[in-house]
Each structure stands twice: as structure tokens, then as C-alpha cells.
């Protein structure tokens, strides 16, 4: 019965006209995950086009940033070029237990933290540090949060409870979580155009740094003790009174079938390595130069020909 079902499924797939044979292991399409932020889109096209240049057939499938890992474990999609520690760690690790492959770590380092545009420093020179920022809290207040300042936080499901940190550090802020990352940028853009003070959640590398000038706010450096020992940190009566790691990992992930069916492509993926500049450059092409992601990928590949060649070998 099980075989029968597989047979039916296979037959259904066979009915679809196949692509011409090329000089690679299999002409079945490799499905590349695409998410909804710029650098990922551009760089997934970069890797996809590289593989196409080698003769592989690729398809792009849009996916949610959390669901994608399980989908790869299930062989529904084949690889992801940007997996972020800060927001995807748990989904990544869970899927890895279910068979998804860790295809290596990029050189790029990531950080997720409170962030202010530079013009805020003109009105509140100490805002680069959490205590200085706290002193200007009222400057960030809105109708809903008065008299407290408003911190525009990430979507609540990203696993980061800023209300707790605010409490632990006894800051005069209130965290308002947005529904989608888009609204973060909507808020930033709106405030930025009017030079209105704003403090919000941000991460690097992403397109923001190529479009807006600003900096992260420094918090007490994190440590294991911070979350376990109350006495640790500025507030002797609370845990969690510290910031986020300054350098998180950025990984690649792949489906278990990738090495089996397309060993050549798997080898390429393992060799792919981006640093922060590569990623920011990719985002810049789209977000500042106004290219479509696919065009941007071509431009990026022209710029970084040596890199692409080194993956293909």
C-alpha cells in the first residue's frame, strides 16, 4: 500500500515533462528557500544562478523563516543560505534533530539589539548607552505609552521578551511589539523622514544599515550568569539585566536528500561563505539602488566573480 502510494506519486511526477538532461547528477529541480528580506533573496539567487551555471535545474520557493527548517528536514525544500542565530536558533536546532543538515557557518557575525538613528544623538547625546537612553526616555513617548518611552520591539514570537529586560534594568520604557518586521521599518522610515526620536529593535547585517544611519545601544554584556544569578549585573535583585550577544552565527542549512541526489551542489553549498560586507552589499543593490533581487544577484556575481569561482572550483 505504501509503495502503491509512492508509485502513484511518482507516476504523477513523471507525467510532468522533464527538463533536458545536463552534465550533472540529476535534472530534478533543486528547490531553494527564499525568505522575505533582501539579502536572503539576492544571495539565494546568487547561489541558485551559480548552480544553474553548472547545469543544475533550480526552483525558488518562498517560505516562512520558521517553517523552512522542518520543510528542509522533510525534503520539501533543499537549502537555505541564511539562517540566523538570533531569530531562528530553536527552529534550526529542532529541525536538525529531525534530519535537516547543517551546511556550515558563514564568516559573517550577527547582532540583534536596540537601535537608534544617529540624529537621536543630537537631541540625547548619551543615547548610545542604555543608561543615557533611559534618561531621555520621555523623548520617545507616544500617546499610548506616556509618560514612558516607547521601544518598538520585534514580533512577539521571535522569542525575545524585552518587557522583561526593561523590568530587570528598571528602565522607563514600554515595549510595543510589532506584528511583522515590515512594521519596524515602517515606523523607522516614518520617524526618520521627520527626524523624530525613535528606538527600535534591529539586527545586522541587513539592509537597514545601507539605508539609514544609526547605531546599536550598548547594554551590559551578556553572560551565562546574567540569566541565572540575580546579584550579577546592574540590578542585584533581578536576572536578565543584560543585552544580547554581539556576535551570533549565520548558517546554511540543507535537506538530507541534497548530498545524496546532487553531491556536486552540496559541495558548492558547503563552500559558500559570506561576510558582513557581502551581505550588506547585496541588500544595498536592492534597497538603495532599486534593483530587482534577481538583477541584483547578477550584479553581485559580477562584482564577486572570484568568490563564485572559488565555490565552483
Amino acid at each position: 500500500m505504501k509503495n502503491l502510494l509512492k508509485g502513484v506519486a511518482l507516476a504523477a511526477l513523471m507525467m510532468a515533462p522533464g527538463a533536458a538532461m545536463a552534465d550533472v547528477e540529476s535534472d530534478e529541480p533543486i528547490i531553494i528557500v527564499q525568505n522575505n528580506w533582501t539579502s536572503q533573496l539576492v544571495l539565494s539567487y546568487v547561489v541558485g544562478k551559480t548552480l544553474e551555471g553548472m547545469g543544475y535545474t533550480v526552483e525558488y520557493a518562498p517560505s516562512d523563516s520558521q517553517l523552512q527548517f522542518q520543510a528542509m528536514a522533510d525534503n520539501d525544500m533543499d537549502f537555505q543560505v541564511e539562517a540566523w542565530e538570533g531569530s531562528m536558533k530553536s527552529a534550526f536546532e529542532k529541525a536538525a534533530e529531525n534530519g535537516m543538515l547543517d551546511a556550515g557557518t558563514h564568516s559573517a557575525l550577527t547582532r540583534e539589539e536596540w537601535w537608534i538613528p544617529n540624529y537621536v544623538l543630537e537631541k540625547c547625546p548619551g543615547a548610545g548607552h542604555w543608561q543615557g537612553l533611559d534618561r531621555c526616555a520621555e523623548m520617545f513617548a507616544t500617546a499610548e505609552t506616556k509618560p514612558k518611552g516607547r521601544f518598538v520591539g520585534p514580533p512577539a514570537d521571535w522569542g525575545k521578551n524585552y518587557a522583561d529586560r526593561i523590568g530587570a534594568l528598571e528602565m522607563n520604557f514600554e515595549a510595543i511589539n510589532v506584528g511583522q518586521a515590515a512594521t519596524l521599518w515602517a515606523e523607522l522610515q516614518s520617524a526618520y523622514d521627520r527626524k523624530e526620536p525613535i528606538v527600535l529593535f534591529n539586527w545586522t547585517p541587513n539592509f537597514i544599515e545601507s539605508k539609514f544611519e544609526g547605531q546599536f545601544v550598548d547594554f551590559p554584556a551578556p553572560s551565562a550568569a546574567c540569566n541565572e544569578v540575580k546579584e550579577w549585573g546592574p540590578n542585584p535583585n533581578a536576572t536578565g539585566d543584560c543585552g544580547a550577544p554581539h556576535s551570533g552565527w549565520l548558517k546554511k542549512a540543507a535537506s538530507p536528500r541534497l548530498p545524496e541526489e546532487w553531491p556536486g551542489a552540496w559541495a558548492v553549498l558547503q563552500r559558500v561563505d559570506f561576510d558582513n560586507a557581502d551581505i550588506a552589499a547585496a541588500a544595498l543593490l536592492v534597497d538603495v539602488d532599486g534593483m530587482e533581487p534577481e538583477e541584483a544577484a547578477e550584479a553581485w556575481m559580477k562584482e564577486n566573480d572570484h568568490l563564485v569561482k572559488s565555490w565552483v572550483q
Partner: peptide, 12 residues
Amino acid sequence: DITRGIGAALKA
């Protein structure tokens, strides 16, 4: 496998 089978059949 059933859902996968249906999924594959619908893919055609």
C-alpha cells in the same frame, strides 16, 4: 505518506 502522496499527485 498519504498526505505526501496526495501532495505529490496535486503537484502534477
